[in-house]
């Protein structure tokens, strides 16, 4: 009995075996968590920035392609007008139907041409050119009435859930 009491008197207060390890594990877990969260957050933001940069690049690439097509169409309009200004619209309609470089709409008073250039995976750049009537061609044979980013796939609003199939 006396020996037991003696040993109890000499035991180290406060710090027991394992308390150091417990503290170390707790601290290391917390620091690891903060480090992981920091890296994860920073990586997410960087990837988002890269996405924006890529989308921007895609837009300008599509714009560049659209300008090159515009150049070809303008060249065609110029040639047709110089050859036959009297039947300008008819000649344009016939020529564009053959080349299929743009969709045409000659139903209204001011005919229009339109074409789309793919922009990334899910979008397109829609260009609509309205033909200027003969006599109003000081600024050119057409004016750009649309240079618009549009979705190229239709949005599917189906949010139904297949709960039971029988």
């Amino acid at each position: 009995m006396k020996a037991k009491n003696n040993s109890r008197k000499h035991s180290i207060p406060v710090i027991n075996t394992g308390s150091v390890s417990l503290l170390m594990i707790f601290i290391v877990l917390c620091i690891s968590m903060f480090a992981a969260l920091s890296v994860s957050g920073a990586l997410t933001e960087y990837r988002y920035s890269q996405k924006i940069a890529q989308h921007n690049q895609d837009y300008y690439t599509a714009s560049d392609t659209a300008v090159k097509r515009l150049k070809d169409i303008d060249q065609l309009l110029h040639d047709i007008y110089l050859q036959d200004p009297e039947h300008y619209y008819d000649a344009v309609e016939k020529q564009l139907a053959m080349t299929a470089s743009a969709e045409t709409d000659f139903s209204s008073e001011e005919p229009s041409l339109s074409y789309e250039v793919p922009l990334g995976d899910a979008q397109a750049l829609k260009v609509v050119l309205t033909l200027n009537p003969p006599g109003q061609m000081e600024t050119g044979y057409y004016r750009i009435t649309s240079w618009q980013e549009i979705p190229s796939s239709t949005w599917n609003g189906d949010d139904s859930l297949n709960l039971m199939t029988f």
């Binding site: 503290l23 170390m24 601290i27 917390c30 620091i31 903060f34 480090a35 969260l37 920091s38």
Partner: peptide, 12 residues
């Protein structure tokens, strides 16, 4: 180690 933990929290 506690001061390092506080520093890590501040950095985060």
């Amino acid at each position: 180690s506690l001061s390092i933990l506080i520093l890590a929290a501040d950095i985060y």
